[in-house]
Design a binder for these strands. Structure first.
Lengths: 216, 216
DNA sequence: ACATAATATGAACCGTGATTCACTCTTTGC
DNA sequence: GCAAAGAGTGAATCACGGTTCATATTATGT
């Protein structure tokens, strides 16, 4: 009897695991999921093709994991915005939508990959979850808003779904790969984000939306 | 010298052409684009695989054509609703959204295929066009609404995009294939459509949306 | 009936890229 | 140092499904 996984090995494996995921994440951020190929990914991660399959059962599983990781970051940023903004439910939602959109416009390929790129069914499933997580965050905030009087009573579940649909769709145009030659500053904030915010907030509050200035 | 395409042949070809498209349309309506396979399609259309390629240069082209045909119908229904409804811009938009949603809920797989199913890039391109056509219809209606005073002044282009995003996303949940075992009546109108309408109309008008009863 | 030309056929082909697996290399405990 | 047990390798394999093409069929005009 000999060999038992030791700490040294465990950590090396963890490092390899991470390196695979991080490399894949880079590739997605560069050109989206469709260009992630196992052979290429292995090369860039500095391992053999077969090794990938010692860490993930399939490409789909790997991509799903990548998707989830990327998602994690985005969702938590939006959550932070919801939690850390002081003010009424409505204002917090506005802040969260802004964070969502600004981050997307700043990393358009990644955002497009998460929001709109055609992907394998399994990964697409993860996308549904991703959208639902946003929806749920917003749902809670809407309930808060109803409670604090900044929003009229309404079906928070539907409203939150509608919110997610609005931002997602409104960003698809600006994010589409065809556009990405464009100067990034063209995409920047105000002109794109303001009308989205207006529509969303009016949808929620049923009253005219005033743009608030706020320092960074 | 002999043989020149005669009327008889022309009409037979037209029939074959249609039969291929119609069969493909059925298949999409049944299980979406992903399950359309050339061999199977040929079998069901009563022709040989090779024949498909006498009518379409590639599968993508064929699917794109199917997509466009399906689209044509839907867009024109929405257009009709916009044109034939009497009333303010806002009311006409409400009617159009209702038509869109009702039709989608009545043929959920097809709607899902058109709205949300992951498809080849070329077909996806057609989808962008499809959404833009809706957006443009709504854009015009919004302009009308601004002119007739039923809507406040706003960026109609953004607003129309947001509208499309809202309905699309709001319907994706109810339409997702997983759900399709559900009783169709569960999906029916009021409970799903009303909150969507409310959000959309409020987003446009910035004032509380009243549900209007109207006989069919 | 015959020649000509277009159409239809479907089994074979092929490109792609994920997956496998027989083998080598490392690690571990004795 | 050695045997056991993983871990790593990467060229070969495989699955899939779209596409091709040599052949058969059908239509047309004389």
């Amino acid at each position: 009897m000999a060999y038992r996984e030791t700490e040294k090995v465990r950590s090396r494996k963890a490092k390899t695991f991470d390196s695979i995921l991080v490399t894949a994440l880079y590739m997605v951020a560069e050109h989206g999921f469709s260009t992630v190929q196992m052979a290429e990914l292995a090369r860039r991660a500095g391992v053999a093709t077969g090794t990938l399959y010692r860490y993930f059962p399939s490409k789909e599983a790997l991509c799903t994991e990548v998707f989830k990781r990327a998602t994690e970051v985005e969702v938590s940023k939006v959550q932070q915005a919801l939690e850390q903004t002081v003010g009424h439910g409505a204002e917090r939602i506005a802040a969260a939508l802004t964070v969502f959109a600004e981050r997307a416009l700043r990393a358009p390929t990644m955002a497009w990959a998460l929001i709109a790129e055609p992907v394998d069914p399994l990964v697409d499933q993860a996308r549904l979850d991703y959208r639902q997580r946003y929806a749920r965050l917003f749902e809670l905030a809407i309930h808060d808003g109803i409670r604090d009087g900044s929003l009229p009573d309404q079906n928070a579940q539907f409203a939150s779904t509608a919110l997610v649909g609005c931002i997602a769709e409104s960003l698809v145009g600006p994010l589409a790969p065809a556009r990405q030659g464009d100067d990034v500053t063209t995409l920047d904030s105000a002109h794109i984000i303001a009308p989205i915010l207006r529509f969303c907030l009016q949808g929620l509050t049923a009253s005219p939306y005033e743009v608030h200035r706020h320092e960074h």
